[in-house]
Amino acid sequence: MILYRLAARKYIHDVSGTGARLYGGRWNPVGSAGIYTSEHISLAFLEKYVHASAKENMQRIALLTIELDEGAVTIFNTDDKLLKKSWADDISYSQWLGAQILADPAIVAFSVPSAIIPGERNFILNPAADHFHLVKFAKVVDFTTDFRLLNKLLD
């Protein structure tokens, strides 16, 4: 399985989950480390965009390609039908659920539905997992896009 992560160039090589641990996220509370990734580059871009406070946050970013061997690591897939209907609007609920999953050292990654694009998935990697060393952080490349899009979105 191939996953993608977009981040500021200066943080792209940090695979400790420190940012998520310090600030929390939709699927992890403050204090719980995780690395947010997406199944598609376009979804990773949109996820980065919704958290950008300025156009500058979308410049000087890099794309990290990540490989997970589904046969070698445990990936937990959340069942969308079992999630509370208002999960996308209830950060406390999704953070609580994510904290439970991240607390299991057997789970290297877990998939969750995207709040931005229904039907697509994000994956949160667990840097504290017993077999995290099996995650392959492949190539990093500078990420560029047609900045006409950003100019329209961030004006």
Rank of each mutant, 00 (worst) to 15 (best):
N126V: 10
E56N: 11
L97D: 02
R60H: 13
Y11L: 06
A33V: 03
L150C: 07
K139A: 12
S94E: 02
H13Y: 09
P105E: 08
I107R: 01
D146S: 15
I116A: 01
L102E: 02
H40W: 07
A52D: 10
K139Q: 13
G19E: 02
V50D: 07
S94G: 06
A62D: 15
I66H: 04
F76G: 00
G17L: 10
P29N: 03
L22D: 08
L134Q: 13
K139C: 04
D155W: 08
I2L: 14
I117M: 08
V112T: 14
L68D: 12
K55S: 11
L22G: 01
G24V: 03
T144F: 09
L83P: 00
K84P: 02
A115M: 03
L82Q: 14
L68P: 12
A106C: 11
Q95M: 07
F45E: 04
Q59T: 13
R26W: 09
E67L: 12
L153W: 14
Y11G: 01
L153I: 10
K152R: 12
L154H: 03
P29V: 05
A54E: 14
R121H: 15
L125S: 12
D80C: 01
K85T: 08
L82S: 11
T18H: 09
L153H: 09
L125I: 13
Y4T: 02
I116R: 01
T145G: 11
V140C: 03
S92P: 04
R9Y: 00
A138P: 06
I124S: 04
T37S: 15
T65S: 14
A33N: 04
K136N: 13
E56M: 14
N122G: 13
A8D: 11
F76N: 10
T78S: 01
I75D: 13
L63E: 12
A129V: 08
A33F: 03
S42G: 09
P113C: 09
A52G: 12
K84E: 11
Q95H: 07
E47K: 10
I66E: 10
F137K: 02
A20E: 01
P29T: 07
F123C: 06
F45G: 08
I107W: 02
E70G: 15
Q95F: 07
D146H: 14
V135Y: 03
P118Q: 12
G34D: 04
D142L: 05
P113A: 06
A99D: 14
T18K: 11
K55I: 13
F123Y: 15
E39D: 11
